[in-house]
Design a protein around this nucleic acid. Structure first.
Lengths: 141, 141
DNA sequence: CTACGAGTTGAAGTTCACTTGAGGTCAAGG
DNA sequence: CCTTGACCTCAAGTGAACTTCAACTCGTAG
């Protein structure tokens, strides 16, 4: 296995070395071997980093990714992991629907079809429900 | 049209009033009518807010949403808008692929199929390419 | 009239996910 | 030997998107 320095790993996954050190401190990456103080990585880290970025893109936060990765490593996954996985699957489904709607909306607008669609609410009409979209934090106070 | 106070609007879209004021300052929402200093909103703001949250979910940042909304309002959309739309469509496509892969990965793991799939890289193998996943900022320095 | 609740403002604070900076180590090349 | 470049650590800084705070204003109910 080709051993890489942090710089090469970073280049390969289009991250900065600082992000990789950050993930390590956050517990997302195992501490790699060191050669005279420097981190030496095998190819495996590339996959792990891909999963991390991937999870992030679909809405996981760092702490959740840690939990996610820990869960993958255990057979069978603990109930807590399964709960989160189910929750996240639902979120991924919603995200897929939303992203699809947005893509189609952009495509239609680029093609000059659908005049004034936002003003007429067509964008939202083609989307599940307004309530389903807004779903983040608790009310004031 | 039922006029709503900022509190009711906030409740309806599951945001805090402060977020709505923030969007207004950021130019995402038009300044509403006021009754003795207080903002009064019509139903239309609910759609607008839905679009905002929706765009956010699929990866638009505030400044981009402003551009997006401005572009929708103009016929034909200006070139700047079209450029962003094309860019964002590509991003939405990537997001859809990623979210789909993640959902399937979770589903398979929940079903107890695919032993040790992360360690063996199956998760990544079934995903477009590692390089496609990592795609955010510029290299060090 | 007073109290209450909902709203107003501008400024400062918070969280997350990194990035940047200062100061230092190490191996290889000239 | 000295420089260069890549790496190290720890602490502090950054940007985005809000939230919170303090001080104030309304309209209405009691």
């Amino acid at each position: 296995m080709r051993a890489m320095g942090i710089g090469e790993v970073a280049k390969r996954v289009a991250l900065r070395p600082s992000a990789i050190r950050y993930y390590e401190k956050a517990g997302l990456l195992p501490a790699p071997d060191r050669v005279s103080g420097r981190r030496r990585y095998g190819e495996a880290v590339l996959e792990r980093l891909a999963i991390i970025r991937f999870a992030q893109r679909v809405g996981f936060r760092i702490a959740e990714i840690k939990l996610l990765l820990d869960g993958f490593a255990v057979r069978p996954p603990p109930e807590r992991w399964r709960r989160m996985a189910r929750q996240k699957m639902a979120e991924a489904n919603l995200l897929i629907r939303e992203a699809t709607t947005m893509r189609d909306l952009l495509r239609r607008t680029l093609r000059h079809k659908c005049p004034k669609l936002v003003e007429r609410g067509a964008a939202v009409a083609s989307c599940p429900r307004a309530a389903a979209v807004a779903k983040r934090r608790a009310p004031d106070r």
